[in-house]
């Protein structure tokens, strides 16, 4: 595995007396896909929010190394996409560049149209988010995240509320675009074991700490005893369905 791109050291967060993250240490390799799994309400989204700056941790450091830019470009994809209802698909995708970069209208349109074409969204460019399907909305959110050429994208449960077919569609999309655009992925997901098919390593968050950190295969083949309870219901449901 290559050297760490994102180093998290001693990251702690609490709400009142409740400890959510307890001195988390993680190394995310460059252009890798890491998935954080764990029970609902355990603090997975809090971890992403601490990394993106939406929440301030009590202690700990987050360091980007080997970054091409002085301030690494970090994008965030929200559970519900967080697209602006009153803006068209084109305007939503253009928003980060339009607001933050000095770029001519022609260059902006060219860049956005280019990305929309790559994500097969050209026909939806003039539509509003409410007028397109859930899957397309995900692609629009991804396009908005990609427009600033981020080095890392944080995905917060990107498949929430999607049927199994669309769920795999989103996973395929993330895997394909990661290969094509070469960004690092840190994802929070409940979709165990489906997500194991696209991730390089898994971080299992339990009681504020990383209970398992490593590739998904050993976890599938012989899960550690403390993880069995978490994985078994999913696996038994899968086998009964088959």
């Amino acid at each position: 595995m290559s050297e760490a791109f994102l180093e998290i050291r001693g990251l702690s967060k609490r709400f009142g007396d409740q400890v959510i993250l307890d001195a988390i240490d993680m190394d995310i390799p460059l252009e890798s896909h890491t998935t954080v799994i764990g029970k609902s309400g355990i603090g997975k989204s809090v971890l992403l929010k601490c990394l993106s700056g939406l929440m301030t941790p009590e202690s700990g450091t987050v360091r980007f190394s080997h970054s091409n830019q002085a301030v690494p470009q970090c994008a965030y994809m929200f559970q519900q996409n967080a697209l602006f209802d009153s803006l068209t698909v084109f305007e939503n995708v253009a928003l980060p560049l339009r607001e933050k970069e000095r770029i001519s209208k022609v260059a902006l349109a060219e860049k956005v149209n280019d990305l929309l074409e790559q994500l097969e969204l050209v026909d939806a460019a003039s539509k509003y988010p409410a007028e397109i399907s859930g899957g397309m909305q995900k692609r629009v959110a991804l396009a908005r995240a990609l427009i600033t050429s981020p080095e890392i994208i944080l995905f917060d449960e990107p498949t929430t509320g999607l049927d199994p077919q669309r769920k795999f569609g989103v996973f395929d999309m993330i895997r394909d675009y990661r290969k094509r655009f070469g960004f690092t992925v840190l994802m929070v997901s409940h979709d165990v074991p489906e997500v194991f098919g696209i991730t390089d390593q898994v971080a299992w968050l339990d009681a504020g700490r990383i209970a398992y950190w490593g590739p998904p295969q050993p976890l599938m083949e012989s899960p550690p005893p403390e993880l069995e309870g978490f994985l078994k219901p999913t696996l038994s449901t899968e086998s009964s369905a088959v």
């Binding site: 700056g53 519900q80 967080a82 980060p96 933050k100």
Partner: peptide, 21 residues
């Protein structure tokens, strides 16, 4: 509604000042 739909958080992650915007 924008707050509930995480649009304000989205602005922050895009480094756009929500109060200004």
């Amino acid at each position: 509604i924008q707050r509930n739909a995480e649009q304000i958080d989205a602005l922050k992650t895009m480094r756009i000042n929500p109060l200004a915007f």
